[in-house]
């Protein structure tokens, strides 16, 4: 075999290995999803979705867990959405390129890299102990909002950056002020992109368990929260709790709850992908 033939053979071999690697993760994912569905789908029925938690696996349901997850989803959106967009607008449209803005930028990049459990410690000390709010929905939502704030800010900036300079010039030239230009031109043109980012960030928040466990969210909450000041649990914590038990029946419950959690996550991601796609189709500069 000549050298060149050997080289070509190696090239082919790597190509096969490349395909293998590209699909291995997806295959593992598929095996896993199938396994979960087989184990859990039979457990999902109306009772499972509408029952309170119970010490007996067969009677336990996820009503409080998914209600808590929805509460967290809405509250986090209400907090992180305006805050993150406002910060993104400031950094992209108002801040002059100074040492201070460089510092803000590095700071946000750093916050994005802080492990979620550290945010839990922050929430525990700041909201639960210092402000005496207790381990309630509001605290959970505040904690997760801080966690996803960097993501919201970064995606807002990306979306705003994509709006051409000429649109701003056009608006200024007609006598519009900075804020009128941002409000009437920049935000409407970038809203799809911003919304996509926010939804992706929320889907991250919905899957988080660690920071909520640290602030003291309980695994066993025998009532559906009715206000932001109520104690709560969420689906990931319920899944964690059931997974930690030795009885097989609880693992089945966990698998069923995972199906519900994944549906919520995939739904949010699906909406985000759809919005991004629509935005790209709608506006071509």
């Amino acid at each position: 075999m000549t050298n060149s033939e050997k080289n070509r053979l190696k090239d082919k071999a790597f190509q096969v290995f490349g395909i293998f690697c590209t699909f291995i993760g997806l295959v593992v994912l598929a095996i896993f999803l199938i396994d979960i569905v087989i184990e859990g789908i039979g457990r999902i029925d109306w009772d499972f979705l509408t029952s309170l938690p119970s010490r007996r696996a067969a009677r336990a349901g996820i009503l409080t867990a998914w209600a808590g997850t929805l509460w967290i989803l809405v509250l986090s959106a209400l907090i992180a959405f305006p805050l993150g967009i406002a910060a993104g607008i400031y950094l992209e449209e108002y801040a002059k390129k100074t040492k201070l803005s460089d510092f803000l930028e590095i700071n946000i990049a750093n916050l994005a890299g802080v492990p979620s459990i550290i945010y839990g410690l922050l929430g525990l000390e700041l909201f639960v102990r210092f402000m005496h709010l207790g381990p309630v929905l509001l605290v959970g939502a505040l904690t997760l909002s801080l966690l996803i704030l960097p993501i919201v800010i970064v995606t807002t900036r990306e979306a705003i950056k994509a709006v051409p300079r000429t649109i701003r010039d056009g608006s200024f030239a007609l006598g519009a002020s900075k804020w009128q230009t941002v409000w009437n031109q920049v935000l409407p043109a970038s809203f799809g992109g911003i919304l996509t980012g926010v939804i992706l960030a929320l889907s991250r928040a919905v899957g988080e368990a660690a920071p909520l466990i640290v602030i003291g969210a309980l695994a066993y909450v025998p009532f559906v929260p009715s206000s932001p000041m109520d104690e709560f649990t969420v689906l990931p914590i319920q899944i964690f709790n059931w997974t930690s038990r030795p009885q097989a029946a609880f693992l089945t419950n966990a698998a069923a709850a995972i199906i519900v959690l994944l549906l919520i996550t995939f739904l949010l991601n699906g909406i985000a992908v759809y919005l991004r796609h629509r935005q790209q189709k709608k506006i071509k500069w």
């Binding site: 051409p164 000429t166 649109i167 010039d169 056009g170 608006s171 030239a173 007609l174 006598g175």
Partner: peptide, 14 residues
């Protein structure tokens, strides 16, 4: 700018 209007190099309709 209400007194001095401007038209740009590249058309920039909103």
């Amino acid at each position: 700018r209400k007194e001095v209007g401007m038209v740009f190099q590249k058309p920039n309709p909103f």
